[in-house]
Design a protein around this nucleic acid. Structure first.
Lengths: 201, 201
DNA sequence: CGCGACGTTGATTTGCCTCAACGATTGTGG
DNA sequence: CCACAATCGTTGAGGCAAATCAACGTCGCG
């Protein structure tokens, strides 16, 4: 069986991922590959800035993204995304209107890009991709629901403990002041909370 | 053209809604109608309790639903839904696992029910419904995103002002202590905020 | 080296919570 | 029809967690 070099480089992560999701044939996967582009980001490089229109869904091959928005000149971090997951700015991507948020890379990051226009074609040529789009939306929903639930947790300390338990990757790989922002508090407060936790164990 | 009495009663709200969404033919809409059930709720009646598995997507024909979950015996209100919109407990509906939340009616409410099993059938028999499922998920996502954004707003007063501006229906129709819970504060605090706003205008 | 980014710590302020008491309104049973 | 309870919003007093403001130490990097 012929396997393109592009496919070879991607199949470690993307192919099994999609295989699992919607059970593509090799032929269908080749069509899919034809739609893709790729992009690398340096640490701190901005992928989407506020006001941009998001025209891609991104598969994170390696690295880490975060999104944030500005309120009164202050960055509010909304979420972190790690390798082997999809990310897109749903609101902008779906409605093709200017993004309210910014996305940047916290580490050197490698992305695979699926343009919206190609996705719309895939919906038609390979109807299975409707399922793909649906699952993407559902996952985005569940991720967001998780964070909202976290935010409604009472005290900042509880929120931090929960984050430690549920997503240790975030604690390990993300600078502390971003975590503070994600939890809805300021860096000095997070520092004190960490101190308190250290002492109580 | 033949129109069933059931369709007649529903088409004012549901038919145009779906027509707009995915452009069903009359034939397809009839199949869809065959899948539906209906249900009425009194004020305060519970639709889904924590631990239940949500087996339906609900179209709200009339009335108002809210969902909430319990943290340490306290109700945290998560969202309000009004007539002419869909609601389902996505996490429970998608994964068919026990719901973490409760849904009740804030007013006498009339619902149209679409069972999950029927929806899965529709995905197969009328592939257009994949689009329906996708749009439902997308809308659920956008609604949730709205609330999360609201919660990350700094002060409770700002959050309340924004809610007033963006969803006056909530202010008009929902009892104040539910609004307080939705904004992440306690009723006495909301009362004081309202007082402050009255004086400053 | 010198600068910027990041985390920590102290002193003070503040926004919201808690607890409690009190009207106003609505609903209900005698 | 009235008496009573339940629900809901308001108001006051006091407390606390996190914000603010500011200074300082450390690390990494051009």
């Amino acid at each position: 069986m012929y396997i393109s070099s592009k496919k070879t480089s991607m199949q470690q992560s993307l192919f099994p991922h999609l295989q699992h999701l919607i059970g593509l044939t090799n032929e269908e996967f080749d069509i899919f590959l034809g739609c893709l582009q790729s992009q690398k980001l340096k640490r701190r490089e901005v992928l989407i800035a506020e006001g941009d229109i998001c025209r891609y869904a991104y598969f994170i091959k390696k690295g880490c993204l975060r999104y944030f928005h500005n309120v009164d000149g202050e960055e509010i971090t909304g979420q972190f995304f790690f390798e082997n997951g999809w990310y897109t700015d749903y609101e902008s991507f779906l409605l093709q209107k200017p993004s309210k948020q910014n996305i940047d890379a916290l580490e050197p990051t490698e992305l695979i890009l699926l343009p919206k226009s190609e996705l719309l074609n895939l919906y038609i040529t390979i109807p299975k991709f409707e399922k793909f789009g649906r699952i993407m939306a559902e996952n985005a929903f569940l991720g967001l629901r998780n964070r909202t639930e976290l935010l409604t947790q009472q005290s900042a300390e509880e929120r931090y403990l929960r984050l430690m338990k549920e997503r240790p990757k975030v604690i390990e790989r993300v600078p502390q002041h971003y975590i503070a922002s994600y939890l809805g508090i300021k860096p000095p407060s997070l520092s004190r909370i960490r101190k308190r936790i250290m002492n109580n164990t």
